[in-house]
């Protein structure tokens, strides 16, 4: 039996090693491209091992580190803030929705779900956020819209519903309020799902470039991914207007390798964050065993 288990583990590990290799391979091409010189990239395309090794793309980025560091700061700030408030508020609404006896539960579910299908479109949303609430060119515009995502609320709801009722019932008999049950019992018991949602919110915000595209004109408030997007888009504008003679001599554009390096720089730090969340998935197991 034990031997069988060990063999199983070895098979699994081998499988995942190969699978992860396949997944990481394209990403590695990108890293390798960012370490190549742009002329040879044109010549031979992407290589597994950059030859010759050339760090000038990173040099180009780091020549003016102020902008990148600033974008890191901005992105980190709004990602963490959104994560904290988002998880808290979504747990607050997910808990009542997980209580099958609650009247009007379906209506609230629908109220949330409806927004996943229907949206007012760009212009009216812009008018509300910019002209009415004046959130453009503030950090809040990254945080507030989309803070409540029905998708995650439903995920939490499903998890909360799976917590044995007996635990909460005994608290109720002891006279605990629903607030106390939520914050004292449900939330501590739900670390896996909360960590998952927190991770998702954090990463979604970390990857956010669209908000800046629409609402941010102040370059001090650019998000990291928008900086990258901007580099690529500047080139696309040139491509699309190749026949507009006026822009023939727009200032020099960063090369492809710089764009790749920027993509690596933008993705890197968020990857370090991931294991931190993973800790809580593991804890979920112990909570589960205590529960039984």
């Amino acid at each position: 039996m034990k031997k069988q288990k060990l063999i199983n583990q070895i098979i699994l590990c081998t499988f995942f090693s190969i699978f992860c290799g396949l997944i990481i391979f394209p990403f590695w091409l990108l890293v390798s491209a960012s370490l190549s010189d742009s002329a040879s990239l044109l010549e031979t395309g992407y290589r597994i091992i950059p030859k010759p090794l050339d760090l000038s793309a990173y040099g180009y980025i780091m020549r003016n580190p102020q902008q990148i560091l600033n974008a890191y700061g901005i992105t980190f700030t709004f990602s963490v803030t959104s994560m904290v408030f988002g998880v808290l508020l979504m747990a607050m609404i997910a808990y009542p929705l997980s209580r099958s006896g609650l009247k009007g539960r379906n209506a609230i579910n629908f109220y949330l779900y409806f927004t996943m299908l229907f949206s007012g479109g760009l212009v009216p949303t812009y008018i509300i956020i910019s002209s009415v609430l004046h959130l453009n060119n503030t950090l809040w515009v990254y945080i507030l819209p989309g803070l409540i995502s029905p998708w995650y609320v439903f995920m939490m709801r499903t998890f909360f519903a799976g917590i044995p009722d007996a635990i909460m019932e005994s608290a109720r008999i002891d006279g605990a309020s629903e607030y106390k049950i939520l914050f004292g019992i449900v939330i501590p018991l739900s670390k896996p799902v909360l960590a998952t949602v927190a991770l998702f919110v954090f990463l979604a915000k970390w990857n956010d470039w669209n908000t800046a595209l629409i609402y941010i004109t102040d370059s001090k408030l650019y998000s990291l991914q928008y900086l990258l997007q901007k580099m690529v888009e500047d080139i696309n504008i040139l491509k699309e207007n190749a026949t507009v003679s006026a822009i023939n001599d727009l200032s020099k554009l960063p090369t492809e390798t710089v764009r790749m390096a920027m993509a690596v720089v933008a993705a890197g730090p968020a990857l370090i964050v991931f294991p931190f969340f993973q800790k809580y998935f593991v804890k979920g197991l112990t909570v589960g065993s205590v529960k039984g």
């Binding site: 760009l122 212009v123 812009y126 008018i127 910019s130 002209s131 800046a212 595209l213 629409i214 004109t217 370059s219 997007q229 901007k230 888009e233 500047d234 504008i237 207007n241 507009v244 006026a246 822009i247």
Partner: peptide, 28 residues
Amino acid sequence: IDSASYTSKMKNIMAAHEKYDLAFTGFV
């Protein structure tokens, strides 16, 4: 406004009737 988002931002500004006096128009 950076060139990557100039067109879309100007369109929103016009659509939302935000006050401005002059703007570049043309290929973007």
